[in-house]
Design a protein around this nucleic acid. Structure first.
Lengths: 137, 137
DNA sequence: TATTAATTTAGAATGATTATAATTTAATAT
DNA sequence: ATATTAAATTATAATCATTCTAAATTAATA
Protein backbone atom coordinates (compact mmCIF):
# COMPACT_ATOMS: atom_id res chain seq x y z
CA UNK A 1 0.00 0.00 0.00
CA UNK A 2 1.05 3.56 0.61
CA UNK A 3 4.04 2.71 2.77
CA UNK A 4 5.88 1.07 -0.09
CA UNK A 5 5.19 4.04 -2.26
CA UNK A 6 6.77 6.32 0.28
CA UNK A 7 10.03 4.44 0.14
CA UNK A 8 9.90 4.32 -3.63
CA UNK A 9 9.64 8.08 -3.72
CA UNK A 10 12.85 8.36 -1.73
CA UNK A 11 11.03 9.81 1.22
CA UNK A 12 11.79 9.17 4.85
CA UNK A 13 9.36 7.02 6.72
CA UNK A 14 8.83 8.90 9.96
CA UNK A 15 6.50 7.95 12.82
CA UNK A 16 4.30 10.91 11.99
CA UNK A 17 3.92 9.89 8.38
CA UNK A 18 3.30 6.32 9.34
CA UNK A 19 0.56 7.40 11.72
CA UNK A 20 -1.08 9.51 9.04
CA UNK A 21 -0.87 6.70 6.52
CA UNK A 22 -2.40 4.24 8.94
CA UNK A 23 -5.21 6.60 9.81
CA UNK A 24 -6.02 7.10 6.15
CA UNK A 25 -5.73 3.46 5.04
CA UNK A 26 -9.22 2.31 4.18
CA UNK A 27 -10.75 5.37 5.82
CA UNK A 28 -14.01 6.27 4.09
CA UNK A 29 -14.75 9.28 6.27
CA UNK A 30 -12.91 11.82 4.15
CA UNK A 31 -11.25 13.66 7.02
CA UNK A 32 -9.91 17.19 6.90
CA UNK A 33 -6.32 18.00 7.81
CA UNK A 34 -7.45 19.29 11.18
CA UNK A 35 -9.48 16.17 11.90
CA UNK A 36 -6.45 14.02 11.14
CA UNK A 37 -4.37 16.25 13.37
CA UNK A 38 -6.83 16.09 16.25
CA UNK A 39 -7.16 12.33 16.04
CA UNK A 40 -3.43 11.75 16.11
CA UNK A 41 -2.44 14.44 18.59
CA UNK A 42 -3.10 12.35 21.73
CA UNK A 43 -0.73 9.62 20.57
CA UNK A 44 1.77 12.00 18.97
CA UNK A 45 1.81 15.07 21.19
CA UNK A 46 4.59 16.70 19.20
CA UNK A 47 2.69 16.41 15.94
CA UNK A 48 2.31 19.64 14.05
CA UNK A 49 -0.50 20.62 11.71
CA UNK A 50 2.17 21.61 9.21
CA UNK A 51 3.36 18.02 9.10
CA UNK A 52 -0.12 16.79 8.38
CA UNK A 53 -0.50 19.24 5.52
CA UNK A 54 2.96 18.42 4.26
CA UNK A 55 2.30 14.69 4.22
CA UNK A 56 -1.07 15.08 2.58
CA UNK A 57 0.40 17.24 -0.13
CA UNK A 58 3.11 14.69 -0.85
CA UNK A 59 0.57 11.90 -1.07
CA UNK A 60 -1.69 13.94 -3.32
CA UNK A 61 1.14 14.81 -5.67
CA UNK A 62 2.19 11.17 -5.78
CA UNK A 63 -1.34 10.27 -6.80
CA UNK A 64 -1.95 8.25 -3.65
CA UNK A 65 -4.94 10.26 -2.46
CA UNK A 66 -7.27 12.91 -3.74
CA UNK A 67 -8.32 16.23 -2.34
CA UNK A 68 -12.02 16.87 -2.06
CA UNK A 69 -13.29 20.40 -2.25
CA UNK A 70 -16.94 19.72 -1.75
CA UNK A 71 -17.23 22.22 1.11
CA UNK A 72 -16.75 25.94 0.81
CA UNK A 73 -14.17 26.43 3.50
CA UNK A 74 -12.24 23.25 4.11
CA UNK A 75 -10.49 20.61 2.09
CA UNK A 76 -11.06 16.93 2.77
CA UNK A 77 -8.99 13.93 1.79
CA UNK A 78 -9.82 10.59 0.24
CA UNK A 79 -7.25 7.77 0.36
CA UNK A 80 -8.87 6.33 -2.74
CA UNK A 81 -7.27 8.17 -5.68
CA UNK A 82 -9.53 6.57 -8.30
CA UNK A 83 -12.03 9.01 -9.80
CA UNK A 84 -15.45 8.71 -8.23
CA UNK A 85 -18.24 11.01 -7.15
CA UNK A 86 -18.73 12.48 -3.69
CA UNK A 87 -21.84 13.41 -1.81
CA UNK A 88 -22.18 16.05 0.90
CA UNK A 89 -25.16 15.69 3.19
CA UNK A 90 -26.59 19.12 3.90
CA UNK A 91 -28.06 17.86 7.12
CA UNK A 92 -25.24 15.99 8.87
CA UNK A 93 -22.39 17.41 6.79
CA UNK A 94 -20.96 13.96 6.17
CA UNK A 95 -19.14 13.22 2.95
CA UNK A 96 -19.81 9.90 1.24
CA UNK A 97 -18.38 8.19 -1.80
CA UNK A 98 -21.05 8.02 -4.44
CA UNK A 99 -20.57 6.47 -7.81
CA UNK A 100 -23.24 7.46 -10.26
CA UNK A 101 -23.25 5.00 -13.11
CA UNK A 102 -24.14 7.19 -16.09
CA UNK A 103 -21.86 9.95 -14.88
CA UNK A 104 -18.76 7.81 -14.90
CA UNK A 105 -16.43 8.76 -17.70
CA UNK A 106 -12.96 7.74 -18.79
CA UNK A 107 -10.29 10.41 -18.85
CA UNK A 108 -8.59 11.76 -20.76
CA UNK A 109 -11.28 12.57 -23.24
CA UNK A 110 -12.14 15.32 -25.67
CA UNK A 111 -15.33 17.31 -25.26
CA UNK A 112 -16.00 19.86 -27.94
CA UNK A 113 -12.30 20.47 -28.42
CA UNK A 114 -11.56 20.69 -24.72
CA UNK A 115 -8.98 18.16 -23.56
CA UNK A 116 -10.37 16.87 -20.28
CA UNK A 117 -7.65 15.34 -18.14
CA UNK A 118 -9.61 15.13 -14.89
CA UNK A 119 -12.98 16.01 -13.53
CA UNK A 120 -14.76 16.21 -10.21
CA UNK A 121 -18.34 15.34 -9.48
CA UNK A 122 -19.87 16.66 -6.29
CA UNK A 123 -23.40 15.92 -5.18
CA UNK A 124 -25.35 17.86 -2.56
CA UNK A 125 -28.45 16.71 -0.78
CA UNK A 126 -29.71 14.49 2.01
CA UNK A 127 -28.10 11.16 2.90
CA UNK A 128 -30.16 8.01 3.52
CA UNK A 129 -29.64 8.17 7.27
CA UNK A 130 -30.84 11.76 7.63
CA UNK A 131 -33.65 11.11 5.19
CA UNK A 132 -34.87 8.23 7.29
CA UNK A 133 -34.61 10.27 10.46
CA UNK A 134 -36.64 13.18 9.14
CA UNK A 135 -39.39 11.09 7.56
CA UNK A 136 -39.60 8.68 10.47
CA UNK A 137 -40.56 11.38 12.95
CA UNK B 1 -33.58 40.24 -16.22
CA UNK B 2 -31.87 40.59 -12.89
CA UNK B 3 -32.90 44.17 -12.30
CA UNK B 4 -36.55 43.26 -12.04
CA UNK B 5 -35.72 40.50 -9.65
CA UNK B 6 -33.98 42.94 -7.39
CA UNK B 7 -37.07 45.04 -7.05
CA UNK B 8 -39.22 41.99 -6.55
CA UNK B 9 -37.06 40.96 -3.66
CA UNK B 10 -37.70 44.29 -1.98
CA UNK B 11 -34.11 45.34 -2.37
CA UNK B 12 -32.85 48.81 -3.13
CA UNK B 13 -31.46 49.39 -6.56
CA UNK B 14 -28.23 51.27 -5.88
CA UNK B 15 -25.72 52.45 -8.49
CA UNK B 16 -23.23 49.90 -7.19
CA UNK B 17 -25.65 47.04 -7.57
CA UNK B 18 -26.69 48.22 -10.98
CA UNK B 19 -23.07 48.35 -12.10
CA UNK B 20 -22.44 44.83 -10.83
CA UNK B 21 -25.58 43.54 -12.53
CA UNK B 22 -24.62 45.15 -15.82
CA UNK B 23 -21.12 43.77 -15.66
CA UNK B 24 -22.44 40.27 -15.05
CA UNK B 25 -25.26 40.33 -17.62
CA UNK B 26 -24.28 37.95 -20.39
CA UNK B 27 -20.73 37.74 -19.07
CA UNK B 28 -19.25 34.33 -19.87
CA UNK B 29 -15.87 35.03 -18.25
CA UNK B 30 -16.80 33.80 -14.78
CA UNK B 31 -15.16 36.65 -12.89
CA UNK B 32 -14.08 36.54 -9.27
CA UNK B 33 -15.28 39.12 -6.74
CA UNK B 34 -11.96 40.89 -6.96
CA UNK B 35 -12.05 41.01 -10.75
CA UNK B 36 -15.50 42.57 -10.63
CA UNK B 37 -14.26 45.04 -8.06
CA UNK B 38 -11.19 46.00 -10.11
CA UNK B 39 -13.21 46.44 -13.27
CA UNK B 40 -15.74 48.72 -11.65
CA UNK B 41 -13.44 50.67 -9.36
CA UNK B 42 -12.40 53.25 -11.99
CA UNK B 43 -16.00 54.24 -12.63
CA UNK B 44 -17.11 53.84 -9.03
CA UNK B 45 -14.17 55.00 -6.91
CA UNK B 46 -16.10 54.62 -3.68
CA UNK B 47 -16.98 51.00 -4.42
CA UNK B 48 -16.04 48.58 -1.67
CA UNK B 49 -15.14 44.92 -2.04
CA UNK B 50 -17.63 44.20 0.72
CA UNK B 51 -20.40 45.56 -1.46
CA UNK B 52 -19.38 43.30 -4.31
CA UNK B 53 -19.43 40.27 -2.04
CA UNK B 54 -22.69 41.39 -0.52
CA UNK B 55 -24.38 41.78 -3.89
CA UNK B 56 -23.06 38.49 -5.18
CA UNK B 57 -24.31 36.71 -2.12
CA UNK B 58 -27.78 38.19 -2.52
CA UNK B 59 -27.90 37.18 -6.16
CA UNK B 60 -26.70 33.68 -5.38
CA UNK B 61 -29.28 33.21 -2.65
CA UNK B 62 -31.97 34.47 -4.99
CA UNK B 63 -30.91 31.87 -7.51
CA UNK B 64 -29.86 34.48 -10.05
CA UNK B 65 -26.27 33.33 -10.35
CA UNK B 66 -24.12 30.42 -9.29
CA UNK B 67 -20.84 30.24 -7.47
CA UNK B 68 -18.07 28.26 -9.10
CA UNK B 69 -15.46 26.63 -6.92
CA UNK B 70 -13.33 25.16 -9.63
CA UNK B 71 -10.13 26.75 -8.31
CA UNK B 72 -8.51 26.01 -5.00
CA UNK B 73 -8.28 29.49 -3.63
CA UNK B 74 -10.89 31.73 -5.21
CA UNK B 75 -14.57 31.65 -5.97
CA UNK B 76 -15.87 32.66 -9.37
CA UNK B 77 -19.36 33.66 -10.43
CA UNK B 78 -21.57 32.68 -13.31
CA UNK B 79 -24.64 34.81 -14.16
CA UNK B 80 -26.22 31.73 -15.67
CA UNK B 81 -27.84 29.88 -12.76
CA UNK B 82 -28.85 26.85 -14.83
CA UNK B 83 -26.84 23.74 -14.01
CA UNK B 84 -24.03 23.13 -16.48
CA UNK B 85 -20.44 21.95 -16.41
CA UNK B 86 -17.37 24.15 -16.12
CA UNK B 87 -13.88 23.72 -17.48
CA UNK B 88 -10.67 25.15 -16.04
CA UNK B 89 -7.75 25.39 -18.43
CA UNK B 90 -4.58 24.45 -16.60
CA UNK B 91 -2.56 26.48 -19.04
CA UNK B 92 -4.31 29.86 -19.26
CA UNK B 93 -6.44 29.47 -16.11
CA UNK B 94 -9.59 30.50 -17.98
CA UNK B 95 -12.92 29.09 -16.96
CA UNK B 96 -15.33 28.04 -19.71
CA UNK B 97 -18.87 26.76 -19.72
CA UNK B 98 -18.84 23.19 -20.88
CA UNK B 99 -21.92 21.08 -21.25
CA UNK B 100 -21.15 17.41 -21.48
CA UNK B 101 -24.15 15.64 -22.95
CA UNK B 102 -24.07 12.26 -21.20
CA UNK B 103 -23.23 13.88 -17.88
CA UNK B 104 -26.28 16.08 -17.80
CA UNK B 105 -28.77 14.94 -15.22
CA UNK B 106 -32.06 16.20 -13.88
CA UNK B 107 -32.22 17.09 -10.22
CA UNK B 108 -33.59 16.23 -7.81
CA UNK B 109 -32.90 12.56 -8.24
CA UNK B 110 -32.22 9.56 -6.08
CA UNK B 111 -28.95 7.68 -6.37
CA UNK B 112 -28.63 4.62 -4.20
CA UNK B 113 -30.81 6.17 -1.52
CA UNK B 114 -29.03 9.51 -1.59
CA UNK B 115 -31.36 12.40 -2.38
CA UNK B 116 -29.38 14.54 -4.80
CA UNK B 117 -30.68 18.09 -4.88
CA UNK B 118 -27.78 19.65 -6.76
CA UNK B 119 -24.46 18.71 -8.22
CA UNK B 120 -21.39 20.32 -9.69
CA UNK B 121 -19.30 19.10 -12.54
CA UNK B 122 -15.81 20.54 -12.94
CA UNK B 123 -13.45 19.61 -15.73
CA UNK B 124 -9.71 20.22 -15.72
CA UNK B 125 -7.43 20.16 -18.74
CA UNK B 126 -6.34 22.17 -21.76
CA UNK B 127 -8.65 24.48 -23.68
CA UNK B 128 -8.78 24.49 -27.50
CA UNK B 129 -6.88 27.75 -27.76
CA UNK B 130 -3.97 26.61 -25.60
CA UNK B 131 -4.00 23.22 -27.26
CA UNK B 132 -3.67 24.84 -30.67
CA UNK B 133 -0.88 27.08 -29.44
CA UNK B 134 1.21 24.28 -28.02
CA UNK B 135 0.81 21.90 -30.97
CA UNK B 136 1.25 24.62 -33.58
CA UNK B 137 4.75 25.48 -32.41
C1' DT C 1 -38.51 67.29 2.20
C1' DA C 2 -38.28 64.47 6.07
C1' DT C 3 -38.03 59.93 7.63
C1' DT C 4 -36.15 55.54 8.07
C1' DA C 5 -34.61 51.18 7.18
C1' DA C 6 -31.44 49.38 4.01
C1' DT C 7 -26.95 49.89 2.03
C1' DT C 8 -22.29 51.21 1.60
C1' DT C 9 -17.90 51.76 3.31
C1' DA C 10 -13.13 51.23 5.41
C1' DG C 11 -10.96 48.62 8.07
C1' DA C 12 -10.63 44.87 11.40
C1' DA C 13 -11.35 39.98 12.15
C1' DT C 14 -11.46 35.24 10.73
C1' DG C 15 -9.67 30.93 9.55
C1' DA C 16 -7.71 27.57 6.51
C1' DT C 17 -3.53 26.97 4.47
C1' DT C 18 1.40 28.03 3.46
C1' DA C 19 5.95 29.79 4.51
C1' DT C 20 9.95 30.25 7.62
C1' DA C 21 13.87 29.11 10.09
C1' DA C 22 15.69 26.61 13.82
C1' DT C 23 15.83 21.97 15.69
C1' DT C 24 15.53 17.09 15.23
C1' DT C 25 15.94 12.72 12.96
C1' DA C 26 15.98 8.68 9.42
C1' DA C 27 18.95 6.65 6.49
C1' DT C 28 23.37 5.68 4.93
C1' DA C 29 28.28 4.91 5.04
C1' DT C 30 31.99 4.35 8.03
C1' DA D 1 27.70 1.34 16.84
C1' DT D 2 28.57 6.25 15.23
C1' DA D 3 29.06 10.06 12.52
C1' DT D 4 27.25 12.45 8.78
C1' DT D 5 23.90 14.86 6.33
C1' DA D 6 20.01 15.84 3.77
C1' DA D 7 15.29 15.60 4.76
C1' DA D 8 11.59 16.16 8.04
C1' DT D 9 9.42 18.22 12.00
C1' DT D 10 8.05 21.89 14.70
C1' DA D 11 6.19 26.35 16.52
C1' DT D 12 5.14 30.31 14.89
C1' DA D 13 4.39 33.94 11.65
C1' DA D 14 2.54 35.22 7.24
C1' DT D 15 -0.92 35.04 3.63
C1' DC D 16 -5.08 35.97 1.55
C1' DA D 17 -9.89 35.34 0.31
C1' DT D 18 -13.83 36.17 2.61
C1' DT D 19 -16.78 37.88 6.42
C1' DC D 20 -17.81 40.98 10.09
C1' DT D 21 -18.49 45.53 12.26
C1' DA D 22 -20.06 49.90 13.24
C1' DA D 23 -20.42 54.40 11.55
C1' DA D 24 -21.86 57.20 7.61
C1' DT D 25 -24.69 57.47 3.55
C1' DT D 26 -28.68 56.92 0.68
C1' DA D 27 -32.94 54.98 -1.95
C1' DA D 28 -37.56 54.76 -1.41
C1' DT D 29 -41.64 56.28 0.49
C1' DA D 30 -44.92 59.35 2.72
Amino acid sequence: MMIKKFKNLGLKLTPQRLAILNLLEGNAKHPSAEEIYNQLKPQYPSLSLATVYNTLEILAKAGELQEIRIKADKRHFDPNPAPHGHFLCRSCQSIYDLDAGPLEIQTPLNIKGYLVEEYTLYFYGICPRCWKKSSGK
